[in-house]
């Protein structure tokens, strides 16, 4: 008897909880530029594009936890950020508007597999082009040239580049490439290295003053700086080169050439800049246009 009462109470509580749900988002965000949807697009010889046409929509792999880059709003479920806008632009030029895009959040570790399996048509999410990955997938772009940089408090003028890190506490994700670089090059003392599970935890520790700098690709850091431009700044002296590409199925050269054409047009035609200004540009850091590397 008591069990049943409890179950009913729980159910009622659950219903009450969902019934009072609020829609929408807490803060208004500036809308990114809308793209004109192309019509009658042909990509001859592309298996992926054939699949897209048969399906009637594109499936894009993105990140969901990188503010300013690939970010899923927890209240509305909408995706936003630089990477997402680039993904939208490509989709529009392929003939698919916002309503015909399906986003799939895929974490770094699962990217190659998702492209190989064909779970996503293309992937846009802080995806560094390198030769090892080129053996499994192919890349269009780069659409952005990132580099390892430092995020610091806006008031902090003591950190001006990697050589000024000695004696400062530096945070990044456990075992990640950027923190290995800091370790290997001895940029700061071993006891000053903080390794947490994700970048937002590092940013939180930076805000609280438990660490002095967060290090990873400047694109990611700019995303956080864009959220709180009054609190953080990106130092702006990248000390590595991370060209971000759009991940595609290997051997789909037709689609790769098409996406490269789209990107080239966007970079020279000013659309790239307006996307940057609406997203990462809010951090106050200037943009450097990427140079395409076709292969």
């Amino acid at each position: 008897m008591r069990v049943r009462t409890l179950a009913v109470a729980l159910l009622a509580g659950g219903l009450a909880l969902t019934a009072c749900g609020k829609e929408g988002t807490p803060g208004g965000s500036t809308p990114a530029p809308t793209q004109q949807v192309a019509t009658d697009v042909k990509v001859d010889g592309s298996e992926t594009f054939k699949k897209i046409q048969a399906r009637g929509k594109v499936v894009i792999g993105v990140k969901e936890d990188q503010p300013g880059l690939g970010y899923k709003d927890p209240t509305s479920g909408k995706y936003s950020g630089f990477d997402v806008e680039i993904a939208k632009l490509v989709a529009a030029k392929l003939g698919y508007g916002d309503d015909k895009i399906e986003y799939k959040a895929i974490a770094s570790a699962g990217r190659e597999q998702a492209l190989i399996n064909g779970d996503v048509d293309y992937y846009v999410g802080t995806y560094t082009i390198n030769d090892k990955r080129k053996q499994q997938v192919s890349f269009a772009g780069p659409y952005f040239t990132a580099g390892q940089d430092l995020l610091v408090k806006k008031t902090d003028n003591s950190i001006t580049g990697p050589e000024t890190l000695k004696g400062k506490k530096v945070c990044s994700v456990t075992g990640s490439t950027p923190i290995q670089k800091v370790k290997n090059e001895g940029l700061t003392e071993a006891s000053n290295i903080v390794e947490l599970q994700n970048y937002s935890q590092c940013v939180q520790q930076l805000e609280q003053g438990a660490v002095d700098a967060v290090t990873t690709d400047d694109a990611i850091l700019k995303g956080y700086a864009a959220q709180q431009p009054d609190v953080f700044k990106v130092v702006g002296k990248p000390f590595s080169k991370e060209p971000y590409g759009i991940g595609l199925a290997k051997d789909d050269k037709a689609l790769r050439d098409k996406v490269n054409d789209i990107l080239e047009e966007a970079i020279t035609g000013g659309q790239w800049e307006s996307i940057y200004n609406a997203t990462l540009g809010k951090s106050g850091s200037p943009a450097t246009k990427p140079v395409l590397e076709r292969y």
Binding site: G14, G21, E23, P26, P74, T75, S76, G77
Partner: peptide, 14 residues
């Protein structure tokens, strides 16, 4: 505590 009110957050938590 505002986050707790949003429907999407609630469904995410559930």
């Amino acid at each position: 505590w505002e986050w707790l009110q949003y429907k999407n957050v609630q469904t995410t938590l559930l």
